[in-house]
Design a protein around this nucleic acid. Structure first.
Lengths: 207, 207
DNA sequence: AAGATATGCCAACAGTTGTTGGCTTTTATC
DNA sequence: GATAAAAGCCAACAACTGTTGGCATATCTT
């Protein structure tokens, strides 16, 4: 007879419910992305996933818990340490376009859209900036000095491109070929990355 | 005895209710901006304006009608025809910062935030781009050629700055002095405005 | 096979929402 | 002052929401 084997709990077996759980998260991500937090209802998500609304509650505790589970973002920034230093801007925008047009860019859209009206989402997006973009800039410049400022300038340009092209869908931008975007905006990123920051604090700059 | 005078209808008298109407719109704008469309309730707006919820319905017909009335945006772009042509980028960003930090920048914030999850707001923002930014670029460049493309590139940078600094409130950007922003981002706008667009369509640019 | 545990559905509660109709009070018109 | 219209409030409806408890089935453990 086998004796008690409680230590096996840690080994993560593939539970049957994991599939359902994944189905719910996927359905939730799509709903949240397309319709926002408030207009997404647990009943609709449950319907999409083909199960009962009460199951969503059991798995994720609350609507907010489901939202948290749906928002997980990885920029998947590649290793750029061997790239020619004068082509980093283009490389970053190239990766950016690729990442945003992958089939699973849903989570990026979800986070960006939600951050406009949901403080929790905004905080998470600030976390992505802090942990992934600032870190990248520090690596590329080989120094922590001004990394936050330079990274935030790069963020204005990349977030702006994401918003206008993928959220707002401004027609001229949607139609603009990768080649043009990479050249023009790549040059901007390159400049932010390598040009020294003008130090503020001279005489009154206005007039 | 005075006879029937129906033709006076056209002269717009100052009705007493206009004040109330204005108070409602103002309250609605603030609520919509801070809490978004769904989380804003007619009862709360009416409470802020100090009247009964049913009055809101009588004045604006529906919640969507109230939302429409609250969203009205004027960029108030000044006349730049006499500015030195090599300082237009800085001038645009200078005006941009001033406009976004005015007390009545509420409507800008409202429109930008709402456009993330509300298709009607997004369409209105695209209208602002079409009617005000493209027009500005056409004027400054003295030609309609490429105006839409150039304007859309400028939009990526300005919308991005607005979003990261005023919506997302990325700390390094919030702390960044006007002087620095004007110099660094002004140079980008200047470049988009004056540099010729690279024409796409050469050999395959990837690899 | 028996028991326990996980997975599922059904039905309902309690609160909030946009919206409406009817009633009173103020204001304007004759 | 009488009359009509405008401006206001109150109370309620009907729909929808997140959430919960109870009960059935399936799956795993022993």
């Amino acid at each position: 007879m086998a004796e008690l084997s409680e230590e096996k709990k840690e080994t993560s077996k593939l539970r049957k419910s994991d599939a359902t759980r994944a189905r719910i998260v996927e359905a939730a991500r799509e709903r949240f992305r397309k319709e926002g937090f408030e207009r997404t209802t647990i009943r609709k998500v449950a319907g999409d996933a083909g199960i009962d609304p009460s199951m969503v509650m059991r798995y994720f505790e609350s609507k907010r818990g489901l939202f948290d589970a749906a928002m997980t973002v990885e920029l998947r920034i590649p290793d750029l340490s061997r790239h020619p230093r004068d082509k980093l801007g283009e490389a970053i925008i190239t990766h950016f376009l690729k990442r945003w047009e992958e089939p699973d860019a849903d989570s990026l859209q979800l986070l960006l859209r939600s951050s406009a009206s949901n403080e929790e989402a905004a905080e998470r997006l600030r976390g992505v900036f802090r942990d992934q973009i600032v870190a990248l800039v520090g690596r590329l410049r080989g120094s922590e000095a001004d990394a936050r400022e330079v990274a935030s300038l790069i963020a204005t340009q990349t977030v702006g491109l994401a918003y206008t092209r993928y959220v707002l869908k401004l027609p001229p931008l949607v139609a603009m070929p990768h080649e043009t975007i990479i050249k023009v905006i790549g040059a901007t990123i390159q400049r932010y990355l390598t040009e020294p920051l003008p130090k503020a604090g001279g005489q009154d700059p206005s007039r």
